[in-house]
Design a protein around this nucleic acid. Structure first.
Lengths: 203, 203, 203, 203
DNA sequence: GATGAATGAGACTTCATTCAT
DNA sequence: TATGAATGAAGTCTCATTCAT
């Protein structure tokens, strides 16, 4: 009983590192890198500022660590979602849906990747870019496999798609539930595939 | 008479205000709101920190002023571009092109609107949102006029479109010239209209 | 009368800068550069920490400013003391006396030069070395003019002399008055000139 | 018996203590006490910060330990050098040479004594002073034995001599080899003994 | 004997803002 | 209109030291 009161460290010894990471992800994703102070994070975690420096050597390395974890998580989510799906458009739809779900599930880790622009943090820019590119390569591959109209610029398509996906973060109302991510992904992919013009209405 | 003594020129009197605005736009667009200090701006303009407070009461009011000017400029650009065009899809294409050109022309004013997210600056959030919404209403209207497939969610379409447009800022390589903005806009609108799937390849 | 209470800034507008310099000199000379904090200086001057940064951009620039002033003062003291004295040994004696008096007069400015070793502050090392060398060049010149025994290494003599002079700071008891500086200088120069061995006692 | 259980090796048990001492000596001598952190030392030794506290209760006690070892070493060096030399000037010359050699041999232990001024570390000042004085007493004795001109102040002579010796640390270029220490000592002692004025040139 | 997480104080520096001039 | 000195809070990071393991 006394134990429960005074010794709250039951399992992992580096639980603190994880809590810092999680809080930092939430803060960076919520207010941006520059607007988040180490103090903010420490306060939220419930430790001293110095304790953060026991686990991370600097603010920008903490950001990189968050980014890494974020890329790992959303990457695994997408990989898991598209595994076993062979048809290219279905693969893309599944990937987009997983991406959106991660993004809208209110998890800081995924949102950081979208929110923090590499060039914002010169000291970490190289690492951030590498991580980002590594993740986005999945979509490059998925788009590569599509059977597209002859004159389509696949690069522009990819960036357009990612722009649409990531922009959701700006306007999506939290609380609407993650079910909507599926609906959004469906509409996005349908739009990209067939367009939204009423059939027979064009040129 | 007092005029004759000190400030004989009628308009140039608030030239400083304009220079502050322009520099602030560039800074906010380049590094974000939190990462830009009043000192940075003052240094770039070549005046004292105090001088900024002569023209703007606070940092967040300065941001709002920049936003206002940005919205005014890009709004006028879009309005000018679509004036006289009746056909809905052509109107949208012209509007998107103007938007992209403003964004990629390296002008801070337009980029600020995309870069600084209203919620980042709580003290100014309401104003920023109002300004943003006022601008984006144009696209709402343009999309409203389109003849779309029956089950299309116009709101999602608008947000998808704006996401694609604004995301360009992240990856667009400057120096490529603004001519490309037109090309990008064309591809974007074509994609949204008809999709990119090879005709006859599906359903 | 109210004036005397509320407006204590009577003359110079950069009085603060001087007070900071003086206090910093005393602190750096007393405890060394690393052991002196900006807070210490601010507290002693009676201003905020930030106020120091209004006048000096960084701690090491403050040190350089103190050094500059110190070199200026002790340089002028020595120059004044040797002016008009033609006989080389008398010139050296006068110079040494002035140097010692400045050093032992309890004035931080002069002591800083002796106390803070250039290599201790890498960011300022180049400047400090330049200033120090500029000052010590006087002694080089004075020694150059001496009529010395043929095999004497003048450089070693100079360094030996400066070592003896500057070491005084370590052991000299303050409060004994500056009169002793003259006596010390006399004994130093006599020793260097003729040695201390009893005449006829050696080789 | 307890010995047989836990510490079977007689000497090597506190090897770590020695490594800490050696590194600390080098650091304190190189950058000064205040500018050296416990972490710097730990890193250099290749152990944890906590490990240092296993061997030394505080930073200032570590300094005292380094000082003690330094005084012991340079003291033994001087004692060994002057042992068996009876003629006072020759004794002094040998002692100075040994002192200089220890100082210039790039060994932190000897340099610490010269570099760290007792008053810099109030908590350890008393100990440092005691150790220093104990060492310098040798020179006091050596000077006492000299046959000097009647009006010579032996105390000033000692401090002058130590000042000249210890100042070498500031300017001596490492890498010139320790052979030069002998040459320097010779010139120092010759200067003090007979002076550097050209014979017959004075008064 | 040694580790490594943690603390609390304090390091230097920059911040937005005010105000007398 | 503009300056520049000043403030007080906050920024990132390092410090010596402690302690459970």
């Amino acid at each position: 009983m006394v134990q429960a009161k005074l010794a709250p460290r039951p399992r992992a010894e580096d639980q603190t590192r994880w809590r810092i990471l999680a809080v930092a992800a939430e803060c960076f994703a919520g207010h941006g890198y520059a607007a988040t102070s180490i103090r903010d994070i420490a306060r939220e975690v419930g430790i001293t500022v110095g304790a953060i420096y026991v686990h991370f050597p600097s603010k920008d390395r903490l950001l990189v660590a968050v980014y890494e974890e974020g890329v790992r998580r959303i990457g695994e989510a997408v990989d898991g979602a598209i595994a076993g799906i062979a048809e290219p458009w279905a693969r893309l739809a599944a990937g987009m849906r997983a991406h959106l779900e991660a993004l809208l599930a209110n998890a800081g880790f995924a949102r950081v990747i979208v929110r923090v622009i590499p060039t914002d943090v010169p000291e970490a820019a190289r690492d951030l870019r590498r991580l980002r590119d590594g993740y986005e390569a999945r979509f490059e591959a998925m788009i590569e496999a599509l059977d597209l109209a002859p004159d389509t610029d696949r690069t522009v398509l990819r960036l357009m798609l990612l722009g649409a996906l990531n922009h959701t973060q700006t306007w999506y109302k939290r609380g609407a539930g993650r079910a909507d991510a599926a609906g959004l992904a469906r509409q996005f992919v349908a739009t990209l595939r067939h367009g939204v013009a009423r059939t027979g209405s064009s040129k």
